[in-house]
Simulated assay, not measured.
Amino acid sequence: MATPRISFEFFPPQTLDASFRLWETVQALAPMLPEFVSVTYGAGGTTRKLTHEAVTTIGRNYGLNVAAHLTCVDATRAETLEIAKSYAQAGVREIVALRGDAPKGATRFTSHPDGFASSVDLIEALARTGDFKIRVGAYPEPHPDSADTLADVRWLKRKVDAGATSAITQFFFDADTFFRFRDLCAKEGISAPIIPGILPITSWDGAKRFANRCGTQVPAKLDEAFTTAARDGREELYALAHCTQLCDKLLEGGVEDLHFYTLNRPHLTREVVRALGIQPQIILENVA
């Protein structure tokens, strides 16, 4: 079984403590030599400036290939493309193009009157610039705003046709969920790489809340196993075993890339990656 290519997702800090945690996370995971790292955009575009600062700092100080999240939320087309232009000028060559979540206080996404109406519109505009490799989101289980998985697959096909070069999935708990989705994508004519998104579970209660918000099914057996492990003081050990086994099954099924949602908590992600045979390398940090 070949060693996988890996990537990590970070989110931008909004407090001083969170800032320290981000840089500790980057320092812990950069030696794993990821193919790329991504930096998220807060709900409703609330971390636009912070995301830009984190993206440029990580790229400059650690030499990592950084993909910046960019959404359609609460901005005009001109404003969004200006942000993209600023990324290109800073040397960023990858964007994760997303519709984005509803602004705070809203129940569903509504496009800005002068903004991009959907992720497909955003992808088409970014593709026309020729500046970026464009990654997009994919949903192995139905998106909360979607009728079913087939509708999600067909929407993904539109995103690929618009110029996306690869997709990163929402997290899931069972490898078969990903394989069914991958097969359905192939049946619908999607040839772009689909990278499974992996959530190392640092808090089972937190993971369940996250799953509930994004439509991810929680297997009853897994809930029981985590509950038992927590009662016995073995939750971290079980989380490591579960995540490693999930990754092993994906690799056995032909997956070559894994994208880890770190939640800016690097310990478990690092241990899983090491269990998969990837050892840290010494890198030199650029110090101002």
Rank of each mutant, 00 (worst) to 15 (best):
A117G: 12
R108F: 06
I168K: 02
L237W: 05
T149G: 06
G59K: 05
S38C: 09
T110N: 06
D257V: 14
S7I: 04
G100P: 09
P219K: 06
V153F: 02
V160Y: 10
T57D: 13
P140Q: 02
S203K: 00
I282C: 09
K49T: 14
L237N: 13
F181Y: 02
D121N: 13
W155S: 15
Q170F: 01
T46P: 02
N65V: 14
R135W: 07
V55Q: 13
S19M: 10
M32K: 04
T216L: 03
C72G: 10
E235R: 08
I190C: 02
E224S: 14
S191K: 13
R180T: 12
T80D: 00
A30G: 04
V153P: 02
L16M: 13
V136M: 01
E224P: 03
G233W: 00
P142H: 03
H112I: 00
C72L: 07
G253K: 09
G115I: 07
D232S: 14
L156N: 07
S191T: 14
D152Q: 05
H267Y: 09
A207S: 10
P12V: 01
I195N: 08
P219M: 05
S119G: 14
A175Y: 03
L122M: 10
R48N: 08
D248A: 12
A225F: 14
F171H: 03
A18L: 12
K221N: 15
R274E: 11
S119E: 09
G130Q: 05
T56G: 09
L29K: 04
A127N: 14
Y139T: 02
P113W: 01
E224D: 15
V287F: 13
T216Q: 00
R158G: 10
